[in-house]
Design a protein around this nucleic acid. Structure first.
Ligand code: FES
Ligand code: FES
Lengths: 140, 140
DNA sequence: TTATTTGATACCAATTTAGTATCAGTTAAT
DNA sequence: ATTAACTGATACTAAATTGGTATCAAATAA
């Protein structure tokens, strides 16, 4: 069971690169080579993050991407939601479709609790926190 | 992001049916129709659970399946591991392959912590617990 | 002997994940 | 004005995973 897909993994690394470059534009090419992410794949992820107002871009030569939001306001939970959909332990209860035993479903209760736990754990992890950890590790 | 796949979902429901039928054999057909699980699909799941010593079977007419382990000793974590592989937040660190930035990876630490949290939450949920919840709900 | 049931596999379809390619439009620098 | 370096948008493909079906042999109770 793999919780984070490449989408999210790459997005996190890209945001870290942008957060480190605070204030100036960084090109997709530079991020891709620096973080070892497939270029065209990364470009799509960046577009998606623009749509969600996490970053902004400047077109043309010397253009690139820049962080828009406060790094501490970007949580891994948000990124999971963008790239993998909302955290849901079991599917059935989010659909109107009756799951056959919904009425006597004991799982539902447990499931919702665990969903909350997972979500809130990933909420504690922000780009800002990761960046500080990264910088601390590099100083050593 | 869907945490439990149909595999695990169905397995849990099948085990609940077996736990409720404690001591006697229940056929795949009966479980399938009772829990609304595709018959052939379920059969494969049951075989897999035999291999993991969660249940035993008796062949032939009037045969079926019976719970082998104590219901309280069967956790959802175990079922996830059987049907979806071990819980791992991000892939890279379980492979020898160097992930490019493993040396300066700040995610690894956070990831391992969250893995532990998720795993231990699902460990709290046993078939025994679910069965008791179910029975309590039915008495109401 | 026959109906019922598991054991073992092989197969298939749908979905999701990962990655590539292409072309149009924008901008900085010369 | 031209060109090189970029992003925007989108279409496409390949691989892996998930969900589901079908088949046939062997066992066993009636
Ligand atoms: S609501 Fe679907 S298994 Fe419970
Ligand atoms: S060890 Fe791979 S991203 Fe960290």
């Amino acid at each position: 069971m793999k919780v984070l897909t490449k989408n999210t993994d790459y997005a996190i690394r890209a945001l870290l690169a942008l957060a480190a470059e605070k204030g100036s534009y960084l090109s997709a090419k530079a991020i891709a080579s620096g973080q070892d992410i497939p270029y065209q794949f990364l470009r799509r992820l960046l577009q998606e993050m623009i749509r969600h107002n996490l970053i902004v871009s400047k077109e043309g030569a010397r253009g690139g991407f820049m962080l828009e939001k406060d790094p501490d306001a970007i949580t891994v939970t948000q990124l999971i939601e963008i790239f993998q959909g909302k955290v849901q332990v079991s599917e059935c209860m989010f659909r109107k479709q009756i799951c056959g035993n919904r009425s006597r479903c004991v799982l539902r209760h447990e499931i919702m609790r665990i969903e909350q736990v997972v979500q809130s754990e990933f909420e504690k992890v922000t780009i800002g926190k990761l960046l500080r950890d990264l910088e601390a590790a590099n100083r050593k």
